[in-house]
Nucleic acid binder design. Sequence first.
DNA 1: CTTATCACG
DNA 2: ACGTACGTGATAAGC
Length: 888
Amino acid sequence: MEKLILIDGNSIIYRAFFAMPPLTNSRGLHTNAVYGFTNMLLRLIQEEKPSHILVAFDAGKETFRHEGYKEYKGGREKTPHELSEQFPLMRELLESFGISWFELAGYEADDIIGTLSKQGEESGLQVLVVTGDKDMLQVVSENVKVALTRKGISEVEPYGPKEIEEKYGLRPEQIIDLKGLMGDASDNIPGVPGIGEKTALKLLHQYGSVEEVLAHSDELKGKMKENLVNHAEDACMSKKLATIFQEVPIERSWEDMVFAGIQEDKAAPMLRKLEFKSLIERMAFTASPAGDASVSGDSRVVSEVDVTIVNSSTLPELTALLPQIEVMYVESYGENPHHAIVMGMVLSTPERHFFVPFEFLKSKEAGVIVSWLGDASVPKRGYDLHRADLALHWQGVSLAGEEHDVQLAAYILDPTDNNQTPSDLAAKYGLAYLTPDEEVYGKGAKFKVPDQETLSKHLARKAEVLLHIIALQRSELEKNEMNRLFYELEMPLSRILADMEKQGIAVNRADLTQLGKEFESQITKLVTRVYEIAGTEFNLNSPKQLGEILFDKLGLPVMKKTKTGYSTDAEVLEKLAPYHEIVQYILDYRQLAKLQSTYVEGLLKEISPVTGKVHTYYRQTIAATGRLSSQFPNLQNIPIRMEEGRKIRKVFVPSEEGWFILAADYSQIELRVLAHISEDEGLQEAFLHDLDIHTKTAMDVFGVSAEEVDSNMRRSAKAVNFGIVYGISDYGLSQNLNITRKEASQFIERYFQAFRGVRRYMDDIVLEAKRDGYVKTLLERRRYLPEINASNFNIRSFAERTAMNTPIQGTAADIIKLAMVLMDEALKNHGLKSRMLLQVHDELVFEVPPDEMDIMSKLVPVTMGRALPLSVPLKAEVSSGLNWYEAK
DNA sequence: CTTATCACG
DNA sequence: ACGTACGTGATAAGC
């Protein structure tokens, strides 16, 4: 028998909304109710295998029920906008699934369903109604079952006549009598006061219906009788309101409701838009365009791949097809790409996959592949080519010609999405299921290189999927106007970064060891003194043990707590210093211990035995703002603020005899960027005259002349400027300056009075973020801010500050990246031997032979200054010396 | 594997 | 009224 499923769309979407945790896609669209609904829909389809489906919705506010009783459904909370915005999405999704839906002005979904269930049964269909509303039980009959949701919406409980009898001892049509007597608070149906489910059932078991109960009210007594008599009309009206109308004029034929299965080509784009990765996976769509996709539960059908293992006998096949290779994937393992072990690589055309075992690549006969890899005129597309390049480099194989890196493109398209493995991306784009690496290799201690067949097939599948992803990314980049950012900035930069990393920076091991000895003797003295004063030995590195000594044993006042106990951070210790002499020693110890463990010992471990240098790894796909990050070791946080730590910089030296270290840093790049994008005249004026910006800010904020600005005023102004860049808040500023929030608030107000353009920018950028769901930098780098419209103050405020900060920090990142590309070109064009070694957000570090010092001292700041013309000058200051310390 | 702390821009 | 400054990575404890 054919089966018709009728779904109460409003009921289910409401339940799904409240049952599911909040969920948004990267554009900030709320999707939790749609997600819950869709999940249920898929399960229904799978389990019930319906031939027809229709989802009914309520239309408009007024229904015929309001004509008789205008308080109907009164007193309900307004639908939250987080839910109401999901209705159109839900309808769109139903259409993409090929499921019909219906609504009709003046009628509720209940009535539509009641009408169709009756007609369905008459037409010989088996009917299943899905809803969360018990009222619906009244339509149950031999061939009409009602499935009520349980536990949110994760389960449904089907009711036929038998189940209703078991649970209530009633016939389906008596459900309205039950409601008539007991009422329904949620629909504002009164019923009879004092009568709840228990009493109502007792009366109905005895008399059968509301009318009969009322007719025999004289047989009853007490308060119940009184209420029944006084509210006889309410009871009748309540029954009427609860009665589902089964004669709705619906102009739909069964044909319209036929469900013929879900078509991938229609459904996948919608699921992608909603970013329902797990559902895409569950539906096991294949990578092939528009196939006969079907809902197959959670079966993860993976298409078989053919892969040719490259060896002496198959090499000619690959050689012949080399010009047609469109995508490559190099697999390596190990956290640090400089030390990564290469397992092998796959080179693919759209039709064929070739697996090149690394062993074979190293053999003499594979020379043709090696020269193909190193040929910059052959464009390479793949995933994390930066890592591949480094891993191969230390094995003596060059990679060149990188044109499209899928990982980097994914980062550019959404820099805050941390799930960018090929497997994640396959799911995100609704492509074939790709087994995550973890499942193939195991993780941590369990990591194991699989057998060649498993490995080669896994890699071939990756390559296959990457090929599809590349095409999708190209059109997305184009659509977002990010082609230049990606192909002309980020891709060339990745090549430059890899070169800098391979080059490395020389570290004087002897000097570093000596520095370590000096730190060590100071540390020993401090530790001894602290133990003496404390009267006991303990682990000074343990905040827990330290807290016990300071607060329990010595009874110092607790300033701040952490989740786990007392806070002992520097801010707290500074405040405690006047109370007890031990505190200063602890602060000094902390400082030295940090230098020793992170910068002396840590750095020593990173010196390559091969080159005597440290080779950091710049990650280009981490920072949400577009900045780089540096790892193994991090060379972007080498101490400079305190003299003790700054000495570490002395061990960073040129790698060639007689050369120099030259460093150039942008002066106030973020505030200059702010002056440009906010078009604030005062700020622009200040930079055009190259004024000391903090002094100028102090003058304007405090209303004094340059001579009257004292160091304290300048310090405050500097903090305000930082705050402005970070997306200011009075609280944050008050913390930083150790003043009250009110005072901080006044500072900010005075700042905005003086720099009106900045205020306008701050206001506008937040509005822009709310409108578009993202903010962007001058070079069209985006950052999505899904939380910008959050109802939670904290979450929303964070997003607002991010909206203010990201265009500033991000544009500064754009600029120095541009400068790096330009410098790389300039070095080549001038035929210079100087090398770019490091980038520290607003600073570039070079090593320079003596005869190039003159030209580099001019070339570097000029190139940096010209990287991106703004309405204010970009200023780069250069200095040099025998080591990084001297280049200050 | 998470937490606290601290180094940088 | 709410209660945080923006962006990172390394180390040592302690579960």
